[in-house]
Design a protein around this nucleic acid. Structure first.
Lengths: 191, 191
DNA sequence: ACCCCACTAGACCGAGCGGTCTAGATTTGT
DNA sequence: ACAAATCTAGACCGCTCGGTCTAGTGGGGT
């Protein structure tokens, strides 16, 4: 996940981006500050200058970063789509490609950070907000493509849970094809 | 998860059970050996006597333990069921109850351990095997309830990913009702 | 009575953790 | 030109981590 980041960005962004990458791979508790800092080629001072509360603040920034990226992917899949089926299938194929790029160990970029993050209330609320944003975004696209409001909400939620669970299964099976087969579960309208 | 464990069990089982409980709550990296041992009221010596490779062996035992429990829940839901819809709805309601019992922070008992576990190949293969067992078990019940073989497999996979993803969403929203609403996504037959 | 061996008990270890703090470098405002 | 503010740099701290190792301890076999 996360595109090249070739051009030099601010120190703060580089930290958030590096942390996102590593948290996705090994989980929040599985990554040490030293690992993040050596990857970002920055000293500890910079970290605690930009993120006063240290690792937990960094996790918030990383999750926000990953969330923005995921929303972009959703838009990229749905904006050119002719139908909801179209957009949703494209989304799963894009995620499959992402899965392969990331090296097959990572969970879904967003939930990989969110569900392993610091166990304080603030972070849990962030998870909820980000997940809801995501579902709402899909629902909005669904409505634009002609689905009635209540059905749009349901299908977006359905898509979300299938994407989450599908990513887990893809990880266990080490195969992005799992994700590519998910759209067939979403074709039939719910209840 | 995991029922009372009131009667005294073997030291080894008590370790595996305690570890399962804690790994589900905080993830593999999030729990220290000292925490497991103090909860189980056992010294380090016992751990390394029963699990020569230490924490990673313990994770395997814990995951196996949790998996057996989950298979039991699947059977309990499907054996008395008249139809697949019946069994699957009961399963989600049982999981919702479990979710409330566990304190709303834990992920799905099995995947909570599996997806945060030690990052070696052996453990990944165990995840795959356990996930497959689970899907196969549901598919077997589906066939017994009259579904044709290929459809049974698909619907079991669909159920699995929705349960995984639904559990994540339930966690973020702190509400077991999320799980209780999942069955409606599974009613329509897949393509 | 004796030993044996599976098991318990916990002190101890080096490494790495997250976090603090002071000193220097660099940029900005005037 | 100079000082204030911002940011980089990294030594240092106490602590906990997973893991090792030696010393008991208790029940079963003979």
């Amino acid at each position: 996940m996360m595109p090249a980041m070739t051009k030099q960005h601010s120190t703060k962004d580089r930290l958030a981006w590096t942390a996102a990458r590593l948290f996705q791979e090994k989980g929040y508790e599985g990554v040490g500050l030293s690992e993040i800092l050596s990857n970002a080629k920055l000293p500890k001072g910079s970290l605690y200058h930009h993120f006063q509360k240290g690792k937990s603040d960094l996790a918030i920034a990383a999750a926000t970063f990953a969330s923005r990226e995921m929303l972009r992917i959703i838009d990229d899949a749905f904006v050119p789509a002719k139908t909801y089926e179209d957009g949703m299938t494209t989304l799963f194929f894009k995620c499959a490609k992402l899965f392969d790029l990331m090296g097959k160990w990572n969970g879904c970029p967003v939930s990989g950070i969110l569900l392993s993050g610091p166990r304080n209330g603030a972070f849990r609320e962030l998870s909820e907000a980000i997940f809801n944003d995501w579902i709402t975004r899909v629902a909005t696209h669904a409505e634009k493509l002609g689905l009635p409001e209540p059905e749009a909400q349901d299908r977006a939620t359905h898509l979300f849970v299938v994407l989450q669970g599908g990513w887990d299964l893809a990880r266990a099976r080490q195969s992005s094809d799992v994700l590519r087969e998910m759209p067939k579960f979403l074709r039939a309208a719910p209840a």
